[in-house]
């Protein structure tokens, strides 16, 4: 039988670093703040930016395989406050019929999260972390809100370059030529597809990238504003990004300075399923944050 169960529930322990919040104009958004590890009940350092995590696709604020919780705890150890929250209609947050495009809605709700942290902890600068569509939302928010001083963008938008096609042929198609099951899968595409039950249909969450010139203009605008950015790509988006310095080639016309860096994890999948991949990915993010925005 359970050895740790108490007869009655007791309040959370004092070293609890996580604090849940309900916010938004209609009290419909839910998020969890993780305080810096040193805080222990004290007010976090308001001079340090807080990290706001934007949810990917339809996943909720715990993140794929708990990635966001693990990141929050890693950042906490380095003295950063982070806040993970659900966009309306996703995870714990309720849909209340707010209008506008999904990008506009995400931007408005991210702003509400910043307002909350500002009023609760006096923090005025923010770093946005986003995976997949969360990265798109982060860029859009950063462009609209001057409080954003940093962005960590995991598998953000990408565009094929000449070298991309060569790499695609060599490192994607060639290895598969000798795999019987990839042939089988290719042939299966010509067979009638089995009906997916309606209850299991994939949501319409297709990402819409801006065109390359627009994306370059947006990045340039953020560079000019001295927003620190870390672009991280994985092998999970091999259909549009597949070599180490593709980012440089994609945006060859952007006048980068040292505020922008990028990294490519070639073997990883899109959500870092393997525990060792996730550990490396999170270490990279925490290290970059620490090195860019200073240790405590």
């Amino acid at each position: 039988m359970n050895k740790v169960t108490l007869d009655k529930p007791t309040p959370p322990s004092h070293d609890q670093l996580d604090r849940p919040f309900v916010f938004g104009e209609y009290d419909h958004l839910v998020g969890v703040a993780t305080l810096p590890g040193h805080a222990d009940g004290q007010t976090p350092d308001s001079d340090r930016p807080a990290i706001i995590m934007m949810t990917p696709g339809m996943l909720h604020h715990v993140g794929p395989y708990r990635m966001y919780v693990q990141l929050a705890r890693g950042l906490s150890k380095e003295g950063f406050l982070s806040f993970r929250f659900d966009l309306s209609g996703i995870g714990e947050s309720l849909a209340v019929g707010t209008s506008g495009t999904s990008l506009e809605r995400a931007t408005s709700e991210a702003a509400a999260a910043m307002d909350l942290l500002q009023s609760e902890f006096g923090i005025e600068k923010f770093i946005l972390f986003g995976l997949c569509s969360g990265a798109d939302d982060s860029v859009h928010t950063a462009l609209k809100d001057d409080r954003v001083t940093g962005a960590i963008l995991l598998d953000a938008c990408g565009f094929a370059t000449k070298r991309f096609y060569w790499q695609r042929a060599c490192s994607h198609y060639l290895p598969r030529v000798f795999k019987p099951f990839t042939w089988r899968r290719s042939l299966e595409k010509f067979l009638p597809a089995e009906d997916t039950p309606a209850s299991l249909a994939i949501g319409d969450d297709i990402r819409e990238f801006p065109d390359r010139d627009q994306a370059a203009k947006e990045i340039q605008s953020l560079v000019d504003r001295n927003v620190k950015m870390r672009f991280v790509y994985t092998g999970g988006v091999g259909h549009y990004y597949n070599y180490e310095n593709q980012f440089r080639d994609m945006f060859h016309d952007v006048a980068f300075n040292d505020s922008v860096s990028w990294k490519y994890f070639q073997k990883f999948d899109h959500v870092a399923t393997l525990c060792e991949d996730r550990k490396l990915l999170l270490t990279d993010i925490v290290d970059w944050t620490k090195n860019t925005f200073g240790t405590h």
Partner: peptide
């Protein structure tokens, strides 16, 4: 829609 109240409660050593 209902009121949402996220919170932590203690169970053994865990919140």
């Amino acid at each position: 829609l209902p009121r949402i109240q996220p919170q932590f409660f203690q169970s053994g050593d865990a919140s």
